[in-house]
Write a protein that binds this DNA or RNA. Sequence first.
DNA 1: CTTGGCACTCAGGAGTAAGGAGTGCCAGCG
DNA 2: CGCTGGCACTCCTTACTCCTGAGTGCCAAG
Lengths: 337, 337
Amino acid sequence: MLDDRKLAVLRAIVEDFVSTNEPVGSKALTDRHNLGVSPATIRNDMAVLEEQGYIAQPHTSAGRVPTDKGYRLFVDRLSTIKPLSVAERRAIETFLSGAYDLDDVVGRTVRLLAQLTRQVAVVQYPSLTRSSVRHVELVPVAEQRLLLVLITNTGRVEQRVIETPAGISEESIGHLRALLNTCLDGLGLGDVPTAVADLPDKVGPDERPVAASVLSVLLETLVENHEEKIVFAGAANLAAVDFSASLREVLVALEEQVVLMRLLGETGDSSTVTVRIGTENPDLGLRSTSVVAADYGVGDLTLARLGVLGPTRMDYPSTMGAVRAVARYVGQILAGS
Amino acid sequence: MLDDRKLAVLRAIVEDFVSTNEPVGSKALTDRHNLGVSPATIRNDMAVLEEQGYIAQPHTSAGRVPTDKGYRLFVDRLSTIKPLSVAERRAIETFLSGAYDLDDVVGRTVRLLAQLTRQVAVVQYPSLTRSSVRHVELVPVAEQRLLLVLITNTGRVEQRVIETPAGISEESIGHLRALLNTCLDGLGLGDVPTAVADLPDKVGPDERPVAASVLSVLLETLVENHEEKIVFAGAANLAAVDFSASLREVLVALEEQVVLMRLLGETGDSSTVTVRIGTENPDLGLRSTSVVAADYGVGDLTLARLGVLGPTRMDYPSTMGAVRAVARYVGQILAGS
DNA sequence: CTTGGCACTCAGGAGTAAGGAGTGCCAGCG
DNA sequence: CGCTGGCACTCCTTACTCCTGAGTGCCAAG
């Protein structure tokens, strides 16, 4: 129902409106894009596009403005993600590779993304809870089965069954338990991985396989036991755009962690950039903002999401390119460290 | 040169302007405050105040508005810090006492202060660097003197001389060194205090006094080895006030940690609330904002500062009351945990 | 299906006028 | 000497009008 030319017209309208922030009329279109037809023809096409809900006029006798539906079509079918320039890639790489731990990576990433897109950047990341180990218990429940119980200072109790490679003596278990408690007692959960790194070396050769299983289960428990944190940067970019009406609401949303979480959305098809446009957002205060987000992680493992938030009137191809690139680089950096 | 009535007039102007955000005229003043004189008299007083630079008119035939100098006089001599209501105090107490570690206290504090003052709250806090222990060395340098060397994974080297209570054998030193390295190796600096808490129990009775000295020096080194962090909240409150012109600049300032640090200023006379008004601020972009700040800490020890940032046209007595109260409660909470 | 022509709509800016808040100054009064 | 009422003056604010120009929808012709 929409022939090629109408799509071209829609694309042109989106591009022009994004760059000028003014309703675009039929004349301007034929001037700036050589569509090969006259303004009158364009007007007919625009009438159709408007009827279908892809564009709208702010008032009679003004040019047309894309609707959310129009942007959606543009993003889905009319645009291709714009890769970053070599210079930009290099800048990202050097900037991120200077970081020395997760917190630092996240901090740099969010600032980088904000600067790159000139919008508000949001980065979500997993963080180990701040509780610490109070006690670790190992209980044999069957010939080749141990129960690992982890008690934290907040009173939380996690239990896991461990399949041991072979039978194991009571003494070995006792020894292992003592060892674990000695080196973990009082430690923040975040430091457990480093603290147990050399533990297999401290046990006898017989106990080593068992120790390994115990540790892997322990570390797994920790990973599942984290909380999501979220940071943002670039709020100043909001003031630049003409956000006037909703600026306050956007700022409010940014300070509500929960809203922010929901905004980034669930992790989608991995390695794809997802876009939420205007009213597609769950939050009412953000009717006129769009969110471009992507997963990031190490290898196959998805850690969390990051993205940017800006006016629906944004340069989607570039923004998507930046988000995708940053997500990839963050993954690489995390993998490398 | 300024008699009591002129001061009263200035006070009334500040109060009215703060609450209405409109230039205040002589008529309005006599109506709302019973100064016992006629508008004409007030006009004479205002002419003097203006000549001295305490107030100004946006344009001829408008009311008067306090200048920075006027606010300064108001803060210094015309107002008293307004204590919080009992309900507010109780709210602060319960809200803060729910926190369970420094990060959490800081997070809650900044949100609390933002809500209480309806302005942007800023909290600075010391944070242990994220480096971890690579090696600890103990070297005897004299009969009753040891050198403690702490090497972090970032390559940083800290050395301290320790006065030992009594002579100590080579073996004891070796033992202590081994013990320290075993229990600290790879640990984040933030976790060192908990990890060494029970160390004195693990050494022989002879070595205990030495161990104690070593530990106290070690912990002291850590304290000096922190970095300052800073967080803010309540940016949405900026949108409420009519900040129009400078909003962008304020947001920019908020995202620059360095600017923010300088803004809070050096720790002043302890337990006092300090106020920076408009152009008294070091930052050019913040010509029309004021900062109300105070130190907080545990007991005599000043940890860092917190404060709020708002338009020069702010309710100083209430804001100062809130800042002072929150600073005190934070201190109490930190002392109690 | 495309195109040029044409009447129509309407936001935005410029110009004008009325209204009103507030001032400064002055002369008189206690 | 300070306070007061009166008065002329300033100038911001608001409302209203008019005009212009961009842009549209429709129509008839190619």
